[in-house]
Simulated assay, not measured.
Amino acid sequence: MPELPEVEVSRQGISPYLDNQRLVKVVARQRQLRWWVPDEVIAQLDQPILSVTRRAKYLLIQLPAGDIILHLGMSGHLKVVPADTPATKHDHIDLLLSSGKVLRLNDTRRFGAVLWQAKGEVHPLLASLGPEPLSDRFNLAHLQAAFAKRNSAVKLVLMDNHVVVGVGNIYANEALFKAGILPTKPAKQVTDTQLARLLPVIKETLTAAIKQGGTTLKDFSQADGKPGYFAQQLLVYGRGGQPCVSCGKDLTEIRLGQRSTVFCASCQQ
């Protein structure tokens, strides 16, 4: 599944094509994605696009009446193509632009979503999300409060969208390694000193991933079709059994919360 950096890279990739454009119409070849594409989305005709923003892993195309919410799911990706480009098998949703181009959602597994958020309202999927990891709201005091009474493994708490959004599996593995924190350690046992190391590492890791174009995942490509390059710099994720870059000992790989978790039992405490 694309993580926050990949979604942000997608936002940056499509924004130049949507800025100062009008949404002419929405074409839905398949409305049954993860959820049914609501009528309000289909009803948006000849509307100015005000901006393209992101909340967690959701993209929001802002219109006068509200926002079209896009989620890429497990395998979805966006591309901008000329309007006369023939649709392929899994090209489910087209947003026809006044420029004569189309923002097209391709989703092989149909776990993505196209939803509607009316102006002045907050969609239920967005209502209880925690702070953005690159915002000032995600600070040491917030981490201390979130971790104080949690018995769950620190990695699972970091991946809890009520605590902070967008720190998915890949980047939780990486940040905890850089901060020297064992991913299985109960969150309430993480010291303030460790939290003070962890906070900037999370921000730096995500920022670097965004800058370098997002991590290369099997089902992910940028709007221009180019893959991300951050995978070249992954220190632990996907490297179970290989030597630690710091101490040379073999990295351990386990399943935690049904997700692959890789760490160095020597370097992480």
Rank of each mutant, 00 (worst) to 15 (best):
A187N: 01
H123E: 06
L206E: 04
Q144F: 07
G100M: 12
H71E: 00
S99G: 11
K249Y: 07
T184Q: 14
I42P: 01
D67T: 02
V102E: 12
G240Y: 08
T215Y: 13
P38F: 09
C247T: 12
F230C: 03
K188Y: 13
G66A: 11
P227S: 05
L198Y: 09
K188W: 10
L195Y: 08
Y171D: 08
H142A: 14
E121F: 05
N106I: 00
L45A: 04
T205F: 10
F230E: 06
L156R: 10
K188T: 00
R137I: 00
S152N: 05
I181Q: 03
A153R: 07
I14T: 00
T191F: 10
A141L: 12
D19L: 13
R22A: 10
P200T: 01
G180H: 13
S135W: 08
L103S: 03
I202F: 07
Y58N: 04
E3V: 05
V165D: 02
R239N: 12
W116C: 09
Q222T: 00
K25P: 03
R150T: 05
D39Q: 15
Y171N: 04
L134K: 00
L206D: 05
A56E: 06
M74C: 06
V41A: 12
Q258N: 06
L96Y: 10
D224K: 07
K25S: 15
Q47K: 15
T216V: 03
K178R: 15
L158C: 14
R11L: 13
G76Q: 07
Y171M: 04
G257Y: 09
G100T: 12
P243I: 12
N151R: 14
I181N: 02
L195I: 06
K89A: 15
L59E: 06
D192T: 13
G13H: 05
Y58M: 04
N161M: 06
Q12Y: 06
W35E: 06
R104D: 08
P2Y: 08
Q117S: 03
V102Y: 02
P48S: 11
W36H: 11
K119P: 01
L33K: 02
Y17R: 00
F263S: 07
L217K: 01
R11I: 03
D107L: 00
W35C: 06
Q189L: 14
D39P: 05
D84H: 13
E253L: 12
L256I: 07
Q32T: 04
V164G: 04
K149H: 15
L206W: 11
D39I: 08
T85P: 03
A179R: 04
G66E: 12
K185L: 14
Q117N: 10
S128F: 07
F177D: 07
Q21W: 10
L78N: 08
P200V: 03
D84A: 13
L97V: 06
P16T: 05
E121W: 07
A179V: 07
F147S: 01
A196T: 15
R150C: 03
V154S: 06
L198W: 13
H77D: 11
S98K: 11
V201F: 13
K149Q: 14
S51P: 09
F230S: 04
Q222P: 00
G228K: 08
Y17H: 15
L18T: 00
Q44G: 04
L59N: 02
A87Y: 13
R255I: 09
V262Q: 10
Q194F: 01
